[in-house]
């Protein structure tokens, strides 16, 4: 992991002038939709960070590592926010961050791409495939997509909460990231 980050650091230094490296967090969003008793409930993360180096004309060659600050979660109510930081959900005291490293990116054609690599949450790491589209805007580009996160595979919601009849296993993670050139 450390070497990967180091390699990414080098990548960033040697990146082409055209490469986008700055995730504009104020414009970007990482949200999710969970199903509780059959009802979709929206949530989001207020804080996240990324090391990215991408040429929007050639996203296949991009390198990216994302880090989400789990404690910045907004589930819609204070009660729910404090509950999901607890042991049976994310256990943020022990596992404050979720990370995703896009180690391979392939083009699906038509401006659609697929990033795959390890997604790590709560000390559990699983290879995950994340489809996304790229849309250039001004001096940067939008990277948008969503994927289904099987929460029980990451032990998000243990004990009584592992009952997927109340809170469904499939959580839809949605992201919309604006990446620009370094200022």
């Amino acid at each position: 992991m450390r070497t990967a980050v180091f390699a990414l650091g080098l990548m960033a230094l040697t990146a082409h002038a055209a490469d986008l490296t700055q995730v504009v967090t104020e414009k970007s969003q990482i949200g999710f939709v969970s199903k509780q008793m059959g009802v979709s409930v929206d949530g989001s993360f207020r804080k996240f960070d990324a090391q990215v180096s991408v040429d929007p004309a050639k996203p296949e060659a991009a390198k990216a590592r994302f880090e989400v600050d789990i404690a910045s979660i907004d589930c819609g109510s204070q009660e729910a926010d404090s509950e999901v930081k607890g042991k049976s959900w994310f256990n943020t005291a022990l596992f404050p961050k979720a990370t995703f490293v896009a180690s391979r990116i392939r083009s699906l054609g038509g401006g659609r791409y697929e990033a795959s690599g390890p997604l790590s949450i709560k000390g559990i790491s699983r290879d995950t495939v994340v489809p996304f589209i790229v849309r250039a805007e001004g001096s940067g580009a939008w990277f948008e997509g969503n994927f289904v996160l099987p929460r029980t595979q990451f032990k998000i919601g243990e004990g009584a909460w592992s009952d997927t009849g109340t809170v469904a296993d499939e959580v839809l993670v949605k992201f919309k990231l604006f990446v620009s050139q370094k200022k």
Binding site: Q36, M37, G38, V39, E79, A160, W161, T166
Partner: peptide, 11 residues
């Protein structure tokens, strides 16, 4: 307290 039972009863 927030629990699956609470979500069920709310529904």
């Amino acid at each position: 307290e927030l629990s699956p039972t609470k979500l069920q009863l709310f529904s």
